[in-house]
């Protein structure tokens, strides 16, 4: 049995949590494209899902090597778009965490923030009319800026907590 669900997530951690909730109830995501998730019915909790932003686009040699290495480690790439990859591993094969130390978690949050922040700023400047010819306030751009600001703030908070801990122990 299959089902399609349309959803939009600005925060990848919430998206990841939702995929894992779905998996726990027996719906395993097998594909994703622009807000469209495809689920397959299966044994509840059979997979653990993770989402990652890669350093390079998925067809770059570095990313290809990484994705092949993931395969060796029993990780399946169910979908990718731009630099995002959707991964899953069988729960029976043990725990599945992409990052095992603070340094790499910090690096991942920073990578996402560096990607989102310029987008948010650009939309903010266009939305307020500070940039471009559109003088009246452009609510579409402002909305996009706001939508991006929410996860950025959440990532910043996590980053701060991690960096504070990092001063005490590895």
């Amino acid at each position: 049995m299959k089902k399609r669900v349309f959803r939009f997530y600005a925060n990848y951690e919430k998206e990841e949590a939702w995929l894992n909730e779905m998996a726990a109830s027996g719906w395993h995501c097998v594909d994703y494209l622009f807000g469209r998730y495809l689920f397959e019915k299966g044994e509840p909790g059979a997979y653990i899902y993770r989402i990652q932003l890669l350093e390079y686009y998925t067809n770059h040699a570095e990313s290809v090597t990484y994705l092949e290495f993931l395969e060796d480690a029993g990780v399946e790439v169910i979908a990718s778009h731009l630099r995002w990859v959707y991964l899953r591993k069988k729960t029976a094969d043990g725990p599945f965490e992409l990052f095992s130390d603070k340094e790499s978690r910090i690096a991942h949050y920073k990578r996402i923030i560096y990607m989102l922040l310029p987008l948010a700023l650009f939309n903010f400047l266009f939305g307020t009319g500070l940039l471009g010819r559109v003088r009246p306030i452009n609510s579409l751009n402002l909305g996009a800026a706001l939508l991006l600001a929410v996860p950025i703030i959440s990532y910043f908070k996590r980053l701060q907590t991690l960096e504070k801990e990092n001063q005490i122990r590895e």
Partner: peptide, 14 residues
């Protein structure tokens, strides 16, 4: 005790 996450390992390698 030390289980390197794939993301951590690859980031460190590069």
């Amino acid at each position: 005790r030390v289980v390197l996450g794939p993301g951590t390992l690859y980031g460190a390698l590069s």
